[in-house]
Amino acid sequence: MSPEHGPRRSRVITVEPALTQLTKLTAGETHRLDRAIVAISVNPELGALIPGSLLRDYVDEIDGVRVIFFVTALQTITVVAYIEA
């Protein structure tokens, strides 16, 4: 028997200006952001599609995190373009 595996996760890449924003976050904010990034990598259809683009806008109101991202066609890579925490 093969072991049960969890959902397949995409690889997450962070680009400018998200990288600059990331350097300004506190440890607590980074922890909250990490949870959101994991959720997005497991389910790349989270968030609302931004009209006229391939971008998605994910807001986690409980953790106070916002991530704008897009996913490659095969959903193997998630590119984070913007973060707020």
Rank of each mutant, 00 (worst) to 15 (best):
T14P: 00
V15L: 14
V15P: 04
V15T: 12
E16A: 15
P17I: 00
P17N: 11
A18K: 05
A18G: 11
A18H: 12
L19G: 05
L19Q: 13
L19A: 13
L19C: 13
T20A: 15
T20G: 06
T20N: 13
T20I: 02
Q21F: 09
Q21N: 07
Q21I: 08
T23P: 01
T23F: 05
K24R: 15
K24D: 13
K24P: 04
L25E: 08
L25P: 00
L25Y: 02
T26P: 07
T26E: 09
T26V: 03
T26D: 03
T26C: 03
A27T: 14
A27F: 10
G28L: 07
G28Q: 06
G28F: 00
E29V: 04
H31E: 11
H31P: 02
H31A: 11
H31Q: 12
R32P: 05
R32Q: 07
R32H: 10
D34C: 07
D34M: 08
D34K: 15
D34F: 14
R35E: 14
R35P: 02
A36K: 06
A36F: 07
I37D: 01
I37W: 04
V38T: 15
A39R: 08
I40Y: 03
I40M: 02
I40A: 04
S41R: 05
V42E: 14
N43F: 09
N43K: 10
N43R: 11
N43L: 05
N43Q: 13
N43I: 04
P44N: 05
P44E: 00
E45C: 03
E45P: 01
